[in-house]
Design a protein around this nucleic acid. Structure first.
Lengths: 168, 168
DNA sequence: CTTTGCATGTAAACCGTTACATGATTTT
DNA sequence: AAAATCATGTAACGGTTTACATGCAAAG
């Protein structure tokens, strides 16, 4: 984020919340201590707190060592971490004791959630399109991803409703 | 898992690793202390350590309070947690400094990962089909999910390769 | 003049993984 | 006899969230 020009902890948090948060969230409790650690490691450098414009803010910039470390990470072919935690899926897995109606309701809730994210991402789309590059690719991926989940769950819903109708 | 008949910490871990682990992983470091906590709360009861069959094992079963608590969770309409951590996506987001070749390689690695999970899930499919119900629904979902990711990324790869060819 | 937003940060709690320790049994 | 598997567990570490504390500036 610092390389992209967002330079204070606050700005980083802002940008994270409208961009990467759907696949990599972050909180102030992580960001500020991490900035300090990165500075101790010589990867970033903080300019002295500016109060000139009235507001106190502490912008950071990458050191050459920081640029290098960032590139090393970007190019590292190591198995990239992928982790999903989906409570709805857990409930679905253990849903055998539920009534068919309850199961349909659960799947509907899961679908709605994905639809909401999709709607939100769609509203950002025009802005991201102009940026292009990595950020736009990830946004399109996120959009396609949540649309897929929503429509798959809609299909499961229909399936469960038909079972329900067939038995009554 | 206990309700489903897996009753010792070891058995629970085994089952988690072949079922829910793709959307909800767990380690011994979580499972054994959690069993103790659940027992303190009166939601499960451990039978005395059996050494009868030679092997020491401590099976648990749900108490009535535990059954109730489990049902309350299953039916709770509260917003279900959904969290994704995808390091590949992060790299893609920040990939603007990469060469086109490097970017293609990154996307290919991400695709391969999803293909591997898909292959693995497909090998379990026949077993899960007979079980049916919740577990089979989640397996089908997981399979469709990873297939979707793999094919979307394959599309992005093609797109990036065409750009590459167009520029050379 | 009150609320919202900018801006920085910390402490406690919580969650989870990794690595280790132990020992019996079954398989090779 | 060695290696793998069954089986239970803990300690240290690391990552993350939540809630709090502080204070100034801009907008209503």
């Amino acid at each position: 984020m610092i390389r992209r020009g967002k330079r204070t902890g606050y700005e980083i948090k802002q940008l994270v919340d409208v961009s990467v948060r759907f696949f990599w969230a972050a909180s102030y409790g992580q960001i500020y201590p991490e900035l300090r650690r990165l500075e101790e490691q010589g990867l970033i450098e903080g300019e002295p707190t500016e109060a000139a414009d009235g507001r106190q803010r502490r912008p950071y910039r990458l050191t050459p060592a920081g640029e290098e470390a960032l590139d090393r990470w970007l190019l590292s072919p190591a198995q990239t971490g992928f982790e999903l935690r989906d409570e709805g899926m857990l409930k679905l897995f253990f849903s055998d004791g539920m009534s068919p109606e309850e199961r349909v309701a659960l799947v509907a809730r899961m679908r709605t959630r994905h639809e909401e994210v999709s709607t939100h991402l769609r509203s950002i789309e025009p802005v991201a399109r102009e940026t292009g590059g990595g950020p736009y690719a990830t946004l399109r991926y996120g959009l396609a991803f949540h649309d897929f989940c929503a429509s798959w769950l809609a299909g499961l819903e229909t399936e469960l409703e038909e079972e329900l109708a067939g038995r009554s």
